[in-house]
Design a protein around this nucleic acid. Structure first.
Lengths: 354, 354
DNA sequence: CTACAGTGTGGGAGCGCTCCCACAGCTGGC
DNA sequence: GCCAGCTGTGGGAGCGCTCCCACACTGTAG
């Protein structure tokens, strides 16, 4: 709420040549020769309207080009018919490209069947976080989708206490109380590492994401699991802590190479990290995949353009978006039902880098 | 407006354990010992309130955790304090990655200073186009931003006739009546082609975008201009019609190579097309840049990951987003003012492909 | 015939705000 | 002492809907 200069043109109410005032429900009723209640019933699909009245109303609506005023409806129903997709912006940068837009695609595909409108809200600093809190508190949406969650993010807690229907992409931990959809990160990582081992790699390293994110933890967990299953000892020196970014991948790869020059395989928890790692490896004179095999995660557009094209773990991102939307709609329509939690399968896309 | 089952839980009004009802302005007034008008004035930053009253009101607001009900405000002011960013989804796919999210970044950075909320609306088919029309007609936003426009897109026309403040990213043609922001596409293309010529290329081809888009036309125009300035004849056989996509780039490149095997430079109107073209060139045994120099457009993430890294024309996408938002806010606040049209400079980022 | 359920309907009340009119209190000039 | 001109204030009216009660009008049963 900015404290000043809210209405720069308060002197000219309705000025500016805005098109003629929109017809109201009252006018439709008058034209159709019925009462307001009947028009409302027709608009909202109530069955208790005679065919004759319904036709008269529909004709009047068509003639006047009537469109209901949502604010008025919201005021009385306190439904808004819109849901928010909240994106911690730092995240957008990291996951970059397709992840973000594929989620949106999926969500909006699912919403297409509905009257729900999708709102996008970016949050990248404290100021915007506060604005969001106010926004949510003002009940301006019927539900919230949150893309990617850090363990210490206050937002899910806020959503919980506000009792706003919400679905997370990913989760904070095993005991996530909110609904969520996520990919089988551990399984995908395990698959990737097994692929490397099967290929004959004996010194498999990994580049992780930020470990305050459950995704990153899960992928690291899958890596460990695959090694253990194959009887390899877990070697901390083979674990490079990074942050999902390309630059982070480069830095961590360099350190890894210094610590364990003999490594012959790297599982990276994101494609862009893998791309960074591949640059470093090539600069160090390693051939890919002959000297070092590399696998990424996400199967993003980057994976298809590296040299050589990158083997990567695909997660069904658009499907995740669809599922999130579906769960959220369920939760909105039947308040108080149990939380819903869905895990979707991942898949290894084999190209030339491993 | 779905005609059925609008209110699945009409039987349990207020059921579901939603948190206690939000306080209203009336309650704030009662607690502060003032009238509704005074509270409203405080909230809206009117100067005509005594310090004493203001403090009392602010204390009451804090105590009750009062947040104004936007629907009620919208109902009376017919301001919504939100603007829509409309994305023709097909477009998203093409421009893919950073373009889209950078625009959003810019817009939302500019909006951060404001009370305006950003809504994202995807339109990918006729059904969604209709929904959007209804949405806009219902005046649910104060203004509209449209990302990338085809010459025959009905949306700008609709915006014009609805007299909704709006700003386009790009334009339909020279005589665009709506406000717009776009990059200097012709200039960027010209720069790129001049770079190729200066490098010694004598047979410079181009891959275009879909020519029903002004962007594509402008980039082609810049290509022609640079050739003419250098005294080269315009050779239609060197122009490959494509569609901004990678696959389109591959196909067009193959045809180009068949028609003019002697070509030694290619200016591509998008990075992904350039990436596709590079694959085809390499498959045909041409070395890049030695045999054929390649330049892309957008300087997207793809450009940094091709082999060799791609020279590309950068447009200041985030800045475009900021500017669009700024123009739109201006237009919203001072209705009836002239349309605003801004062109931002492009820049050639030289890497190894040319 | 009256009683009674079941339909379809009209319209009052009210959602939570902003707008604006009326008015109280307080100067200061004549 | 009065009147004008300020401030600051309270609260009525009304934005365009939905909800729901009351009521007319069927028909069928008692």
């Amino acid at each position: 709420m900015s404290p000043t200069a809210q209405r720069p043109d308060a002197l000219h109410p309705g000025a500016g040549g805005r098109a003629t005032a929109r017809p109201t429900l009252e006018e439709v009723a008058a034209l159709a020769g019925v009462g307001r209640g009947t028009v409302s019933r027709v608009i909202n699909g109530s069955p208790r309207v005679s065919a004759k009245a319904r036709e008269a109303v529909q004709a009047a609506i068509a003639e006047l080009g009537y469109v209901p005023n949502r604010a008025a409806r919201t005021l009385v129903t306190s439904r808004t018919d819109s849901i928010a997709l909240v994106v911690p912006e730092a995240e957008t940068r990291l996951f970059s490209e397709p992840y973000f837009s594929d989620i949106i695609s999926g969500v909006s595909a699912e919403l297409a069947e509905t009257d729900m409108q999708l709102l996008l809200i970016l949050v990248r600093n404290q100021r915007e976080r506060d604005r969001l809190s106010a926004y949510l508190t003002a009940q301006r949406v019927d539900g919230v989708l949150v893309v990617s969650v850090h363990r210490d993010d206050p937002l899910p807690g806020l959503l919980e206490s506000l009792e706003i229907p919400s679905v997370l992409a990913g989760r904070r931990g095993d005991l996530e109380p909110l609904s969520y959809v996520h990919a089988d990160n551990a399984g995908g990582a395990r698959m990737a590492v097994r692929h490397l081992l099967r290929r004959g790699c004996s010194q498999v390293a990994t580049l992780t994401g930020p470990l305050d994110m459950e995704v990153a933890q899960a992928r690291l967990g899958g890596y460990r699991r695959a090694l253990e299953e194959a009887g390899h000892a877990y070697d901390e020196a083979l674990v490079g802590l990074a942050d999902f970014t390309e630059e982070g991948g480069r830095v961590a790869m360099r350190e890894l190479l210094a610590r364990r020059p003999e490594l012959d395989g790297v599982f990276c928890a994101s494609d862009v990290m893998a791309a960074g790692a591949m640059q470093v490896l090539r600069a160090a004179g390693r051939r890919i995949p002959d000297d070092v095999a590399v696998i990424g995660f996400d199967d993003s557009i980057v994976a298809r353009h590296t040299d050589p094209p990158m083997t990567s773990v695909r997660q069904p991102i658009e499907e995740m978006g669809r599922t999130m939307a579906r769960l959220l709609l369920d939760e909105i329509h039947e308040r108080g039902r149990a939380r819903r939690q869905v895990v979707l399968a991942t898949e290894l896309i084999v190209r030339d880098s491993a």
